[in-house]
């Protein structure tokens, strides 16, 4: 692919940079991942299928997907709200709030995990409030969802914020002049513009949630069939010397993530095209 149209390339360094990129990518990412697939391939097709579809594994997919989904949905709403408030309103402490949004991104997940567990355990600050109501937060899917909301918080906010900022004020103004009510103008004019970025943020939070380990493992309680997430199951398989099985489950998880990733890139390209065609 390098030879095509090489002549009209004015800038130097194409081969060097692309070569280095591909080399480094292969060494650090692609070859190791290929080994993973290879290793899981040591199982026969039937064994492979059995491994990745036993009830316990299925339960873990379901849990991982559901908690990530709910967390991503919650982040969709919270993220939209935060982006909206941060872009459109002025209030004291706004800059600080804006900075804090990125904290889950910079805070080590293990730290987040023990902090959240301390808060939501039955004897924790918030956990103890819900304990009398019979509601268990830590060591239940709800706790996992809360950890994932924390982890995914920045994604939606940071994808929506710039779009909201760029929204032409006159577009909205036109809507108001046409007599549209505020809620209507939000729904008909602003929201459609935000959909691609909302979707991207949602998918990012979702993808991150499925693979998350560090923060969840502290708060989940790790009950097989109930609060055992898929990444934890991989670790469990490893500890039982079942490398090939661990690799097989990892491949499934990897496929899910990869599909999501493709989806994100697709959404981004689609929205880019839409923007450019306007």
């Amino acid at each position: 692919m390098a030879s095509k149209g090489n002549k009209d390339r004015v800038l130097p360094g194409f081969r060097l940079t692309l070569g280095f990129t591909v080399l480094y990518l292969s060494l650090i990412v692609l070859i190791p991942i290929a080994v993973l697939a290879l290793r899981s391939g040591e199982l026969s097709a039937a064994q492979w299928w059995n491994t990745v579809t036993t009830p316990r594994v299925m339960a873990s997919y379901k849990l991982s997907l559901m908690t990530s989904l709910f967390a991503a949905l919650a982040n969709l709403l919270i993220g939209l709200l935060l982006a909206w408030v941060l872009v459109r309103y002025r209030f004291p402490g706004k800059k600080m709030i804006d900075g804090l949004i990125d904290l889950p991104f910079a805070l080590p997940t293990a730290v987040a995990g023990i902090a959240l567990t301390t808060i939501y355990a039955p004897n924790g600050w918030i956990g103890s409030l819900f304990q009398p109501l019979g509601l268990k937060i830590a060591y239940s899917p709800l706790g996992i969802t809360i950890a994932l909301i924390f982890i995914g918080l920045p994604f939606v906010v940071r994808t929506v914020q710039p779009v909201l900022q760029d929204l032409e004020a006159d577009m909205e103004e036109a809507a108001v002049l046409l007599g549209a009510y505020r809620w209507r103008s939000f729904r008909k004019v602003i929201l459609p513009e935000l959909v691609p970025s909302l979707l991207t943020g949602f998918a990012l939070a979702f993808a991150r949630g499925i693979g998350e380990y560090g923060s969840v493992v502290f708060i989940s309680g790790n009950m097989p069939m109930k609060t055992e997430i898929t990444p934890l199951l991989i670790i469990t398989k490893l500890e039982q010397y079942q490398y090939r099985e661990a690799a097989a489950i990892a491949v499934v998880l990897l496929l899910i993530s990869f599909v999501l990733l493709l989806l994100i890139n697709f959404v981004q390209r689609w929205s880019n095209r839409r923007l450019h065609s306007v």
Partner: peptide, 28 residues
Amino acid sequence: KFQFRGKNVLVTLIDLPFAVSPVISGLI
């Protein structure tokens, strides 16, 4: 700075570690 075939795939592959569970990155 350049146009070449397979660019989109490359970009997606570069993103891959973001979507991979950290546990898997250790496992590999």
